[in-house]
Nucleic acid binder design. Structure first.
Lengths: 211, 211
DNA sequence: CGGTCAACCGCATGATGATGCGGGTGATAT
DNA sequence: ATATCACCCGCATCATCATGCGGTTGACCG
C-alpha cells in the first residue's frame, strides 16, 4: 500500500487528488495540507511514501518545502505537481530534491502511474519537462576546449595552475623552464582574454575547460 | 506519418523493431543500418524524423554517431535504445544530442509511445534512467558553503576574487580597506586549507561554493 | 560583565606574478 | 623552401600577493 500526502492550497484540486488516490488500489491518501509548514510538522508522526507538492503555496514555497523535507526525511519521494514550466522552477525543484515533476494538466491515469513509478525507482516527468531537463545537458559546452583552441601544452599548464601549483612547481612538473611556463601562461591569457591567474581559472571552470 | 530509421547491429533486434514500427499506424521504418557510418551517408538523401540508435556498434559508437548526426541534422530526433545504464553513457549520449534514452527491455507499446512522444516535444526515458538524470542535479553540492563555514563577508570576497578582481578592486567594490581584504583572504585560505588565490578559486569551484 | 567572534584597519618584508622584449627548434602546410 | 605555428628559453621591471605581527569595534552569550 503506497501512502501519499498532498500539499496543495487549491481546495478543489487537493480534494480531487485525494479522491483519485483513494479510489486506486494499493494506494491511499493519508493526509492533505494547504501549506508546507503544517505538512512538515506532521511528518515525524505519519510519514508518507510519496508527497505530491505544489510550488505556488502560501508561506513557504513548495521548492523550499522540498529542501526542508528532504533534509530530515531523505527517503520520502516528492513529486512536484505544478503549473510552472519555467526552467528555473524545474531545476530548483530537482536540485532541492524532488524526484519527479509533473504539470497539473497531467491526466489522472498518468498521475497514478507516476506515483507508482516513483516508488519503483523512477523519476516521472511530463514530456515537455523531460525535454527541458535533457536540453540542459546539451547546451553545457557552449565553448569547449576547441573554441578557445588552447594547445595541449597550454592545457597542461592551465590544469596544473588550477591545482594550485606555482610557476616553479609547474616548471618542475613538466620539466621545462620557469620562463617557458611564463610564456605559455601569457598565451593562455591572450586566448582566454584575461590577465590574471584567477580570471583564467574562473573562465576555465565556467567554460568547462577544467573539471 | 512518422518516419523512423534504425541503427542496430543485432539482426534479430533490428528486424524486430522494424516490424513493430511498420505494424503501427502513422509510423514507418524507412531504413535500417548495422552501423553509424552508412546511416550518416544516407541521411542527405532520406532523412527520417526519428532514429533509434544503439550504443554498442561496430566502428563508430552510437554516441559518436549522435554527435555527428546532430551536427549536420539538428532536427532529427535520436532515441538511444541500449543495454547500457551507466551514468557515463547516459550523460554522454544526452550531451551529444540524444533526445531520449530507453533501455532495450522496454516493452513494445512503450517504445511506440516513446517515438510518438519524441516528435511531440518530449524526451522519453526509461524510469531508472530518468532517476539517474534527476540524481545528477541533486548531488551537486557535496560540500556546500556551510561545510566550509565561510562567513558571508568572506563569500563576498571569494566571489569577487573569482571574477578576476584584484585586492584593490575588491576593496573599492566593498568599500573596505585593502588591508581588510587581505585579512579576509587570509582567513579564507585557512578555512579552505589553501595558500594562493588560484587554489582557493579551484577549490571553491569544485566544492560548488561558486558557480 | 568578561569572553568570543566576525568584521574592520594598519605596516612591513620577501615571494610570486604580469608583461615587455629578445632569441631558438622542429613539424606541417602551401 | 618558406611560412606558420607550437613549443622552448632567457632577462628585466614593476605590480601584486602571502604572511607575519599588531590593533579596534560591536554583537551575542553565558
Amino acid at each position: 500500500m503506497i501512502q501519499v500526502s498532498i500539499v496543495e492550497d487549491n481546495d478543489a484540486i487537493r480534494n480531487g487528488l485525494a479522491m483519485l488516490i483513494n479510489a486506486t488500489a494499493d494506494m491511499e491518501c493519508i493526509s492533505t495540507y494547504t501549506d508546507c509548514e503544517t505538512c512538515i510538522g506532521d511528518l515525524p508522526d505519519h510519514g508518507p511514501d510519496v508527497i505530491l507538492m505544489d510550488i505556488g503555496l502560501p508561506g513557504m514555497s513548495g521548492i523550499e518545502g522540498v529542501r526542508e523535507i528532504k533534509k530530515d526525511f531523505p527517503d520520502i519521494h516528492i513529486l512536484m505537481l505544478t503549473v510552472y514550466e519555467e526552467n528555473d522552477k524545474i531545476f530548483d525543484a530537482l536540485c532541492a530534491g524532488a524526484t519527479g515533476y509533473l504539470v497539473k494538466k497531467t491526466p489522472a491515469e498518468q498521475l497514478i502511474q507516476a506515483i507508482q513509478d516513483v516508488v519503483h525507482g523512477g523519476s516521472p516527468m511530463s514530456s515537455h519537462i523531460a525535454r527541458k531537463v535533457v536540453a540542459f545537458f546539451q547546451k553545457q559546452p557552449p565553448k569547449a576546449m576547441e573554441e578557445h583552441h588552447l594547445s595541449s601544452r597550454e592545457m597542461d599548464i592551465l590544469t596544473s595552475l588550477a591545482n594550485g601549483n606555482s610557476y616553479k612547481l609547474i616548471a618542475d612538473d613538466l620539466t621545462i623552464s620557469i620562463d617557458t611556463v611564463r610564456f605559455h601562461i601569457r598565451n593562455i591569457y591572450k586566448k582566454l582574454q584575461v590577465n590574471s591567474q584567477t580570471e583564467a581559472i574562473s573562465k576555465a571552470f565556467r567554460d568547462g575547460l577544467i573539471k
